[in-house]
Write a protein that binds this DNA or RNA. Structure first.
Lengths: 349, 349
DNA sequence: CTGAAAGCGCTTACAG
DNA sequence: CTGAAAGCGCTTACAG
C-alpha cells in the first residue's frame, strides 16, 4: 500500500480547534456535536474556531471510539447492470439521509473473491448488503457455497441480502416475489391462448430459480404439458449467449408461440434471434420479459414485461438494515412485481 | 444514526489473540503483518491463535494509527450509466489489487449535494476520484462551481478527475481525448462525402464541450459552412429528449445527411427519430455515435462509433492516484479513443 | 527477539 | 458548565 506519511498540511483535529478556542478538546467535542451541557458563548467560540480552521471530524477516529464505523458495505457482483445497480442506488440514497456512507465492493462474479471480500469487509463495516454472485462459476463447488454461507453467519454484523440470497439463518432478505411474478406471466400468456410457451433461463441463483418455479407451477395448474424441451439456458450473461439460446429453443420446439425471458440479455438475444429467423414480435412470437429493455422498447416493440419495484426494494433493504443495527430481527421481505402490458405479447392466432 | 453499542459477540482484537498466544499484543501485530523480527515459533503460535479465534484486523484502528484510512472515495453522479460506471469499475479492480477499498458516493447530478459530499469525504478518505455532475443543474450558479473548485483545492488529499473535470490546480485528470476523437469523427464523415452534418450535444461538462470543439475544428478546416442550425442540445439525459432533439434538428435542417451523437441517449433518440421520420440508417442518414449502444447494434444496425478506452482510463486513474498518494505530481492524462467503423455511416449518395 | 509505552483523533463517564 | 483521564484497536520507536 502507499506510504503512511500524513499529508504535509495536516487536517485540523479536535486539539487544534481546542487550542484556538482556548478550551479542552472534550468541550470542543461536545460543542460540535451539540451534546452535553455547554455554555452558549463557549459553544459559539468553538464553532467559530472550527469554522475558521475548516475543521471536519475524523470519522475514522469517531468510529473507533464508538465501536461503529458509521459505514456500511455492499458486496455486489459488478458495478453496472440493471436492475441490481438501480436497487443499490436506492439503498445508497436512503442511507445518505441517515448520514451513512456506503462502501461498495465487487466480487466480479467470482465466488472465491467474494469470500475473501466478505472476510475483509468484516473488520471495517457495521453491516453488509449482499448480492451474491450467480453460480456460473460455482457449479460443482459446494464447498465454496458452504464456506460463504458460514462466513455470512460469522460476520458478527447484520447482513441483508438484496435481489437474491443464500440460505443463511439470521440474515435479512429483500427481493422481488419472483415466483408469483413468473406465475402471473405464464397465466397471462395462457389467457392469450398460448399453449406452447418457451422459457429462457440462467444460472441457479435464487431469483432465477424461483422464476422458473413460478412458471412451472402455472403450466401445471393450467394442465399444460410442459417438458424440458421448452426450456433453454444461457451459457453466459451476454446477448450473444441469449441469441444462441433462443435460436436453439426456437429451432428445436417449433410449436412455441410465446417466450419468457428471465433477464436483460435473454431478452435482447431473443429479439436478435427472432429477427434472424424472420419471426415478427408479437405476430409470430409473443415475448414477455423480466425487466424492460428501454432501447428495445424504443426502437423495436414496446415490451410487455415484469417491472420490479426497485425503489421499494432499495428502501426496504436500507430500512431493514437500520432496524437490524438497532437489534431488530432479520426479516425476509418479498416485494411484489407488476406486469406491464404493452405490445410484445399478443393473442395467439 | 444507529446505536453505538457493540455487537453482542465482540469481534476478537489483537489483545484477544495476544492473550491466547501468551505474548504481547505488539508481538501479535508484528507477527501477523510479518514485519520486524519475530521468532518463527512465536509467529506460528500467533498465527494459530489468530486463526482459531477468527481474528481479522480492524482496518479502522489501523487506519487511525497510520494516519491513512486505507480507503479511497469516488464521487460520481450516479451508480449506473456507461461508460463512466465502466471506468469506475476498472478503477475499483485496480485498487483491489493494491488492497484498497473504494467507497462510492453519489451526487445524483445535484451540484449542491456534490459539494456537501466533498466536505464529508474529506475526513475519511485518503483520496478521491471525482466525476463532477453535468451542469444541467448548475446553469447560472457560478458560485456553486467556484465553491466546488475551492473545496477540491482544500481537500488536503489527492483528487483525480475521471472522464470530465473542473479546472483545479493540483488535481489530476484522466479522460478521453475528446477533442481529437470528435475531430476524427467529423473528418471521417467528410471523407464519405457528407457536407451537411448535424450534431447532437448536451450539458457543458468538459467532455461534451471538447467534443463539440473538435467537431467544429474539423468543419472549419474542411472549409464547410457550419452554423448553429446544425446543432441541437438535449434538454435532459433521456432517450425521449434525444428523440425530440433529433426531430427538431432533422426537421429544421433537412439538408443534413449525417448526424453525430454525443452520448447514449442522443444515439437511441436519433434512431427513434429516424424511424419516426421514415429515414433509413445509413441509407438516408449516416450516424456516428460516441459509445456503442449494444442493443441498437444488435437489433437495428451495427453502429459506427467512438470507442473510449475505458480500461486504460480506469487503470491510469488508479495509477495516478497511487502516485499522488506517494507524493507524485498531479498529471493530466489524455487517453486516445478509437473510431470503430461499422454500418451506421455510409458514403453520401 | 519481545514487551511496555506512547499516541493516532475521537467520545464519555467521572469529578469538580 | 468544563476539564482530566481512560480507552476504542492498532502501530512503532525505544529499551532491554
Amino acid at each position: 500500500m502507499y506510504t503512511n506519511r500524513r499529508s504535509p498540511r495536516r487536517h485540523p483535529s479536535l486539539k487544534d480547534v481546542a487550542l484556538a478556542a482556548r478550551v479542552s478538546h472534550a468541550t470542543v467535542s461536545r460543542a460540535l456535536r451539540n451534546v452535553g451541557r455547554v455554555a452558549p458563548q463557549t459553544r459559539a467560540a468553538v464553532l467559530a474556531a472550527a469554522d475558521r480552521l475548516g475543521y471536519t471530524p475524523n470519522l475514522i477516529a469517531r468510529g473507533l471510539k464508538n465501536g461503529a464505523t458509521g459505514m456500511l458495505s455492499a458486496l455486489v457482483p459488478g458495478l453496472s447492470g440493471p436492475p441490481v445497480s438501480d436497487m443499490m442506488s436506492v439503498v445508497n440514497e436512503e442511507l445518505e439521509r441517515a448520514g451513512i456512507a456506503l462502501q461498495i465492493h465487487t466480487s466480479s462474479e467470482d465466488a472465491e473473491r467474494q469470500l475473501e471480500k466478505l472476510r475483509l469487509i468484516r473488520g471495517s463495516s457495521d453491516g453488509v448488503f449482499f448480492v451474491p454472485t450467480s453460480d456460473l462459476l460455482v457449479r460443482g463447488r459446494d464447498d465454496l457455497v458452504q464456506a460463504t454461507t458460514r462466513q455470512v453467519q460469522e460476520m458478527g454484523v447484520p447482513v441483508v441480502f438484496v435481489d437474491r440470497y443464500l440460505e443463511v439463518p439470521g440474515a435479512g432478505v429483500v427481493c422481488t416475489d419472483n415466483e408469483t411474478a413468473a406465475y402471473e406471466v405464464a397465466m397471462y400468456l395462457i389467457s392469450l391462448g398460448h399453449r406452447s410457451i418457451g422459457y429462457l433461463t440462467g444460472p441457479a441463483v435464487s431469483s432465477v430459480r424461483e422464476r422458473l418455479q413460478g412458471f412451472r407451477r402455472a403450466m401445471a395448474e393450467a394442465g399444460l404439458a410442459y417438458d424440458e424441451s421448452h426450456l433453454e439456458s444461457l451459457v453466459a450473461d451476454s446477448y450473444e449467449a441469449g441469441a444462441e439460446a433462443a435460436l436453439r429453443l426456437l429451432r428445436r420446439a417449433q410449436a412455441i408461440t410465446a417466450l419468457v425471458t428471465y433477464n436483460h440479455n435473454a431478452t435482447v438475444g431473443t429479439v436478435v434471434a427472432a429477427r434472424r429467423l424472420g419471426l415478427e414480435i408479437p405476430g409470430d412470437l409473443s415475448l414477455v420479459a423480466f425487466d424492460d429493455v428501454r432501447e428495445v422498447s424504443a426502437i423495436q416493440v414496446p415490451l410487455t414485461y415484469v417491472e420490479q419495484d426497485v425503489v421499494s426494494i432499495g428502501r426496504h433493504a436500507a430500512q431493514l438494515m437500520l432496524d437490524m443495527l438497532r437489534g431488530g430481527p432479520p426479516r425476509q421481505i418479498r416485494v411484489q412485481a407488476r406486469l406491464v402490458v404493452r405490445q410484445s405479447a399478443a393473442a395467439v392466432r
